[in-house]
Amino acid sequence: MPQIVVENLTKTFRVAERDPGIGGALRGLVRRRHRAVAALGGVSFCLEPGELVGYIGPNGAGKSTTVKVLAGILVPDGGRCEVLGRVPWKERIAHVAQIGVVFGQRTQLWWDLPVVESFDLLRDIYRVPKADYARSRNELIALLALEPLLDVPVRQLSLGQRMRCDLAAALLHAPRLLFLDEPTIGLDAVSKLAVRDFIRTLNRERGVTVILTTHDMDDIEALCTRVIVIAGGKIASDGTLEALRARVTRERWLLVDLEDADATVTDPDAEVIRRDGHRIVLAFDPDRVATAVLIARLAARHAVRDLFVQNPPIEEIIARLYGGEEPARP
């Protein structure tokens, strides 16, 4: 039984248009022109329990719109959507009691309250039984190392600390489903790692299903077993990270450090795509030329200090999938 079923979801926003200047603003008071912006143009996917899915796409592709529909705070124009057997927006209260949501850009905590009091208030809001609450709270405090933060007012927390507290806050009621909207945005490297570790533990050990939207491709590579790419309101790709790579390009990269920074490098089967001092990046198709042959050819012609082969970074793949086009945000 899938936990989430989304079928042919559509949503169009009406955006008010205004002419520039004071005249335009005044005209807008009387008569307003609207422009229809299609945010979702028939999105479909299913999620099984325990999946950890990366939901990615450029700004304005429909990521947040989808997450809002799944979270029950936005009603779509058409299509079917069932989460844990419920239509989210029809039974909002029953639905949101079963899910956890974290927005990286916005805290769910009370700004002036010590962290622990936000937690206690959430216990009352979600009506978590005392024993369950104590267990779940202590577990989360241990996993996220929150002990020293508990008495600090939220406004005094650093971004990384706040995100850890927000994650705990979204999980106190032990939801089976977690939506994370850019959970690592703006975090330093250490905090990012801590957040990723936590998400992995949560998914692997507690079996929580996670949908993660992000612009940080390292999040995706580190965490996701499955990647759904949305662009222009439509699903552009859905599958494993490897499948996504294979679909877009078979290309590999050969990174070479040369002794001579000014050497001219050419090869019939590889293309120089980047050059940075001694470092040269060559893209090649392993079906056309064996990696060993390419390396041998280069080593014969140039003094090679170091070299290694890698897959193109996921950013590159995604950029190609989007076709370099970023539709305007509604």
Partner: peptide, 13 residues
């Protein structure tokens, strides 16, 4: 400010 979304995400009126 879009903060109303936060209230909609909580299981209370």
């Amino acid at each position: 400010g879009g903060d109303f979304d936060r209230l909609l995400l909580r299981p209370r009126p």
